[in-house]
Design a protein around this nucleic acid. Structure first.
Length: 435
RNA sequence: GUCCCCAUCGUCUAGCCCGGUCUAGGACAAGAGCUUUUCAAGCUCUCGACACCGGUUCAAAUCCGGUUGGGGACACCA
């Protein structure tokens, strides 16, 4: 039975790199019918915080990586101590007074030897133990170090495959030494390539808005983010990019993971997210959006037309890179007063179009069947009568109605805006004295 | 400094393991055009890579060695 683990330290939010590690562990467990274990590495009392534990748990849940078991290292201190004592008794470790003199650390004595690691992704990696310093197992404050707690836990929790970032490669020989000293079976290792920033260098907690919760808040869908992350070092082949997680589980093999570090490309994520938004159920998208719209003051609790909103979501769905952009792009449908983009006004409303707007307004008003087709028909009639090109009028009307130069088709905009609001907004640009 | 990892279009990748089917395929981005209803939507097209040097071989993106470049690790952090 395969048992893998994701072991984050709650010293920060779950970020892109961590999410990717969690993804491959979870995916491998699903693909092999194994267990996905979560271990909170909170041995650093100073930097570990409960709010980060909550945040990590919430993000993992949102991404869909549900764990089968969970452990907290802070609750397992006695276990680590017991094993450290054993190594001490066997003469494999020694104690040393801390520089501050406050306590005694337990240190493992490295025995010179060659260490071989068979990495599932990279093949054999060899190390010479003479380049490794003696390893602190228990700090003078009585808490276990990362490498020691990690080995004891992985062994005791029967972890069969340690799948983690590349940055842990140099920890691996140290850990193998400890497995051997403790008489534990050495698990299989798979070191994932790192995710790099566009500017070069690794993507980490310190390098910007990489927290999963930030992506969620910006309107990225979990499915799209997972799909994108998956593609960062694995490929389903056959030129496929959009892949359902269920299908990925069927095709996934840890051995097929790439060795090369990948650069995180937000533009491609945006494209991917749009692919998912396009094909998502509109009702579901609206459900996600309602809290956002409330927060932005675009709708009020218990005072909105869900069917109307649903139509708007459908209207914008094909062109949203981030779901939450809807709030900004569709605001003119929901606000009583619109803000006209200054550049748009200069470009399309600097000429006086009172007569044209007035005529169009009247035609709209006279429409018996008010629908997208009839609106277009009456617009086409008007430009024919005025003997002008449609673009001469179409862009100014869009700006007058929406305040923006881009958006869905004008006739759909008018239809969903309704007769009254269309007339009202056009009237704002009709100079009375000219009539 | 020491140790380790990596190397295909700007980016993500397919191909590499099992050399010939690769004048290297796809996607994102970019550029051009179409859509005369905009683009942040859609469609079409274009640009664009086997890091370098040797070796093995009839034949190398694919195998081997080196160079260069990039990355990571060297804590009583995790």
């Amino acid at each position: 039975m395969v048992r893998v683990r994701f072991a984050p330290s709650p010293t920060g939010k779950l970020h892109i790199g961590g999410a990717r590690t969690a993804l491959f562990n979870w995916l491998y467990a699903q693909a092999t019918g194994g267990k996905f274990i979560l271990r909170i590495e909170d041995t650093d009392k100073l930097r570990s915080r409960q709010e980060f534990v909550d945040e990590i748990l919430e993000s993992l849940c949102w991404l869909g990586f549900l764990h089968d078991e969970i452990y907290y290292q802070s609750q397992r201190t006695d276990i680590y101590l017991e094993y450290a004592q054993r190594l001490l008794r066997q003469g494999k470790a020694y104690t040393e007074k801390s520089p501050a003199g406050s306590g005694e650390a337990i240190i493992y004595k490295v025995v010179p030897q060659k260490i071989k690691i068979d990495d599932l992704i990279r093949g054999t990696i060899e190390f010479d133990a003479t380049t490794i310093k003696d390893q602190v197992l228990v700090k003078s404050d009585g808490t276990a170090t990362y490498n020691f707690a990690c080995v004891v836990d992985d062994a005791l929790l029967s972890i069969t495959h340690v799948i983690r970032g590349d940055d842990h490669i140099s920890n691996t020989p140290k850990q193998v030494l400890l497995y051997q000293a403790l008489g534990f079976k050495v698990p299989a290792f798979a070191h994932l390539p790192l995710i790099l920033r566009k500017e070069g260098g690794r993507l980490s907690k310190r390098t910007g808005a990489t927290a999963i919760s930030d992506y969620r808040r910006a309107g990225y869908l979990a499915s799209a983010l997972v799909n994108y992350l998956l593609l960062l070092s694995w490929s389903p082949g056959a030129d496929r990019e959009i892949i359902d997680i269920k299908e990925a589980i069927k095709l996934f093999d840890i051995r097929d993971v790439n060795k090369t570090a990948a650069t995180f490309d937000l533009k491609k994520l945006d494209w991917m997210n749009n692919q998912y938004i396009k094909t998502s159920d509109s009702h579901w998208l609206l459900e996600q959006l309602i809290p956002v719209l409330k927060e932005k003051g675009l709708i009020r609790e218990g005072d909105f037309d869900a069917n109307y909103l649903l139509s708007l979501v459908k209207l914008f769905q094909p062109r949203l890179a981030r779901l939450n952009d809807f709030a900004e792009w569709a605001d003119f449908f929901l606000l009583p007063e619109i803000t006209i983009d200054e550049a748009a006004q200069d470009k399309f409303l600097k000429n006086d179009l009172s007569r044209e707007f007035q005529l169009f307004s009247e035609k709209i008003d006279g429409l018996k069947d008010f629908n997208v087709e009839s609106i277009e028909r009456c617009f086409r009639e008007l430009i024919k009568e005025l003997n002008i090109e449609s673009r001469v009028l179409i862009h100014p009307i869009r700006v007058a109605l929406t305040g923006k130069t881009v958006g869905p088709g004008l006739f759909e905009i008018i239809y969903y805006l309704g007769k009254e609001r269309t007339k009202e907004r056009l009237a704002n640009f009709i100079r009375q004295e000219r009539r």
